[in-house]
Design a protein around this nucleic acid. Structure first.
Length: 276
DNA sequence: GACCAGGCGTCTT
DNA sequence: AAGACGCATGGT
């Protein structure tokens, strides 16, 4: 893999095990969209970026001088999927799941954004999640030069009340969003704190936030804190696990449990008839 | 209308 | 510890 940053265009060649559409739309991120020309547009950090994938080459624009490494990390391009997939495909069932949903990488997104978007995701569907997230950003995010909006900062949301969030049409989740914002704004819960804790302790701390249970906590750990060993379950996952792995995941998969989960989940979503 | 959507808090046993 | 239920909203 080779990377070049020139004229604010980051070009990465020799990329493998990465399918942009699969990774951006499989339900881990909610702010990317497909453009008519086949490229992808999404707000990451403080700017709207355009991602293009052609063959084994990715281009991303705009990228500042000091952002190149950061984006390799965001798209999980530094993670060794050769090795990870080698381990995971030792299991024949998991191998089938990976073959059915190739190219998914678990992105490394912003902690607070993941926390809020997955609170919104509870008992909800992806289309509506995207709508609520979009309104949240338009309502409280910093406007960007290109017309987009940054994801709101916790401090911006912490002082609001439920009525202020009514336009989101997020239902009962509005109260949960406010509690999450306040707890992060106050420093009671922080990325630094969570990174220093064991998986179990980090889970417990996250679950002290109202509206954060086992599922949301593990999603935050996996998608927002690089904890690949977190294993976020949900209705589809429980169904899929029961059918595919009645005795649980093989032990050697535990290290990449969260990554395995993405493949199993996508497999289950693509083959619903197998799990009804 | 009924039922569901990548749950969680609360109230029962 | 485990199960039932409601929660707000929008789509089939």
């Amino acid at each position: 893999m080779q990377t070049v940053l020139e004229n604010c265009v980051l070009t990465v060649t020799g990329v493998s095990h990465f399918d942009a559409a699969a990774s951006l739309f499989c339900g881990q991120a909610f702010r990317w969209e497909l453009l008519p020309d086949g490229s992808f547009s999404g707000v990451v950090g403080s700017a709207r970026r355009t991602l293009t994938q052609t063959g084994d080459t990715l281009t991303l624009f705009p990228v500042a001088e000091n952002e190149a490494d950061w984006f390799l990390h965001y798209f999980a391009l530094n993670d060794d999927y050769d090795k990870m997939l080698c381990v995971l495909t030792r299991n024949p069932v998991l191998r089938r799941c990976i073959a059915a949903a190739p190219g998914i990488r678990v992105l490394h997104q912003d902690f607070f954004e993941v926390l809020l978007t997955f609170i919104i995701s509870q008992n909800n569907n992806i289309l509506r999640i995207r709508g609520i997230v979009s309104r949240l950003c338009e309502g409280f995010g910093e406007p960007l030069p290109d017309g987009g909006f940054a994801f709101p900062r916790p401090q911006r949301l912490a002082g609001l009340c439920a009525e202020d969030l009514a336009f989101l049409r997020a239902g009962w989740r509005a109260d949960y969003l406010l509690d999450a914002a306040r707890r992060v704004a106050s420093g009671e819960v922080s990325e630094e704190l969570l990174r220093g804790l064991s998986l179990a302790d980090a889970r417990a701390l996250l679950q002290t936030i109202r509206g954060v249970g086992p599922k949301v906590a593990d999603c935050v750990l996996l998608f927002g804190l690089d904890r690949a060993e977190a294993f976020p379950t949900d209705v589809w996952m429980r169904r899929a696990m029961k059918t595919l792995f009645p005795k649980g995941l093989p032990g050697y998969c535990a290290r990449y449990a969260g990554v395995a989960q993405q493949f199993i989940f996508d497999y289950a979503r693509r083959n619903p008839h197998l799990f009804t």
